[in-house]
Design a protein around this nucleic acid. Structure first.
Lengths: 205, 205, 205, 205
DNA sequence: TGCTAAGCGAGACGGTACGTCGCGTCTTCGG
DNA sequence: CCGAAGACGCGACGTACCGTCTCGCTTAGCA
């Protein structure tokens, strides 16, 4: 969550922690149903059975709410959640199986993108909450493979780690094509693996 | 232009074609100065010395105006504009030199992205006017290279042609990093060329 | 008509005089159907099968068109059209019979009233074309009665002549009540005649 | 006020009653300065320091706002505010002294008149708020005079009570002449009194 | 147990962009 | 040059949404 604050004072009625989850769920649903532009803060509040003030007490703007609504949906995947299959190819496959329902994120990102150039701190949050975790995930798998000696020496791990997010974002946001299995396989087998491991070795010796 | 229609009738005063250009220029300037969200139709009309009705007579919404404003800005680059340097690497380099000021496009795309999933015909126009020309450009260079025998046999040209737009869009829209020369060189030398031509051969040496 | 202009030059195609009548009729119909505010110049032109320029070439504004549309509807009644019945009461009765379809005028006046304080020349036209003829009519009948010796000596003929228009305008524009026969009879028998002739004399009995 | 509604529910933030007065005053000022057509809702809101939504939350249209703006301006004069001078003539004189600044009302009425035939409920409000109180005022004075025995037996009080409003409205709205003292004196001394009391008796006897 | 500050749902607030429509002018065509 | 058609600049209209503020009520925690 973006909203710890953990103020040292605790006068008056404490915040009802259950509202956070209701509001975030409402935000995610409205976002999925209507898209970023047509989703309204009043609509989110109403769907959550909350008042607008309760929403704004927790999130400073529509953009920040959306970030959290979306970030907390896939908070789960840490590098260590991806099982070590012994090969980069197997690890990437396992990752894809884990993030089967990550798609809502991109819907949200769509609405935020227009604000990023004019709101640096918003961009920072998006980077930190949405972008970096995904890049880091791939990067961790690449480093794991490097320790196994799979990678071509001198390969630019940062550049490669950014490729899957970029390709996925472009496909969903711009092309509008679905994130089907064939595409995900192409990303790993025809882009990432060749660049990272050179030829076809993969798990084979 | 999105608005030819080429109506066969010619009753009444014809549209003043000079207004189109004025409005599109005004739209592009406002967009660059203020960003998609903060750009207003009144502002565009005023800067163009036009009335709002004149703008809305030509474009049904802000989104459609922005598409055209942006699409007509880089209409210029056709595959044959890129000189044949004899190698894929040289051709891509030449392309980068040509599109030095293409960046405004992405600023516009930023604002449109949130609307695409809910406006299929808008998505179609974006695809046709913004996305496809850029993909086709790279694709044409790849096919030229293939005719020279540079490409790995069986390589997925469509997949590769989409990589530069995806990486550029992601960098500008999401990461917010600049399109510097180092990045563009990395895209070609460390991603596209290895995938397309395998190792280092190219035709040279 | 307000539009003589009667320019001494006659170059080019002369104006099609039939358009005047068509436009005026269209204006009167639109006015009756939709009221002043909702009547539009485009609508009038379209109904008349004319272009807006043709309308504006003849009348400088909506208000002036409406004045003419309405004034030419009751242009007919001149003082000498009212038969001399031998008594003021009879003359007024005869007048009422003549102006049975004068009502459209007031509908038009309704829309003009809001402009009068800010458009003196418009007010002058309204006065000259709509108000004065009606006042003059009553005034003529009063003077005719005076020559017959019916009037109280020293009575203010101007004041009295303005009473029927004022009462009719108020009833139609403000009260919204119909111009029924009972009301018209009250205006003459219970207001105008008592004030003009004192008691009950008139010439009769 | 037209907007009591006196809803039995009291959820949410209650309307700020001070905004009503501010907006009405702003509306009256704009109306007086610029006239009905040229007065704008944005201008009223801005002058009141309010947002347009706050205005439209209370009044559904420009016309309704103007009615209230104008009606609440002269709410003050009740029949009992007019001192009993002992004669109809004296009472009417006292009335004229009271309503010295009632003129703004007619300016507003001017703009509304064109809407009345097509908006019955608007007409009803105008009748109830603007017309009837003024008629009732004169009527009350006439009835007071009747109790004193001043009136001609059988005189039509309703007809007479409508005469001053009609004459005043006509003079201001149509003739455009000022409401000077001479005119007001003529209305009472040469129209109303003769019709109501017959000859010249008035208080003398 | 009763006080008090802060939480809550609801919705009014100031502001501002949207997209529509009407006015009165201007510009094309054909007659 | 007239006439139909309709585009033009301008600007008001009424709606919607954002983010803030304010109402009356409820709910802890301290006394």
């Amino acid at each position: 969550m973006t909203t710890p604050v953990s103020a040292p004072r605790r006068l008056g009625r404490p915040r009802d922690a259950t509202r956070d989850a209701d509001i975030l769920r409402a935000a995610r649903d409205e976002l999925a149903e209507r898209g970023y532009e047509r989703m309204t803060m009043s609509g989110v509040a109403a769907r959550a059975g909350a008042g607008k003030a309760t929403v704004y007490r927790r999130w400073a703007s529509k953009a920040e709410l959306v970030i959290d609504a979306v970030a907390c949906g896939s908070r789960g995947i840490a590098p260590e959640d991806v099982p070590d299959t012994g090969s980069l190819r197997g690890d990437l496959r396992a990752l894809h199986d884990l993030k089967h329902r990550d798609e809502g994120i991109w819907q949200a990102l769509a609405g935020l993108v227009s604000e990023l150039p004019h709101a640096p701190e918003l961009a920072a949050v998006v980077d930190e909450r949405l972008v970096r975790p995904r890049v880091a995930l791939v990067r961790a798998l690449l480093e794991r493979a490097d320790r196994r000696g799979e990678l071509i020496p001198g390969v630019d791990v940062d550049l490669l780690a950014g490729l899957p997010p970029a390709m996925i974002a472009y496909r969903l946001l711009v092309s509008g094509e679905p994130l089907d299995d064939e595409f995900l396989r192409a990303v790993t087998d025809r882009v990432l693996l060749p660049l990272a491991t050179g030829g076809r070795r993969s798990s084979a010796s």
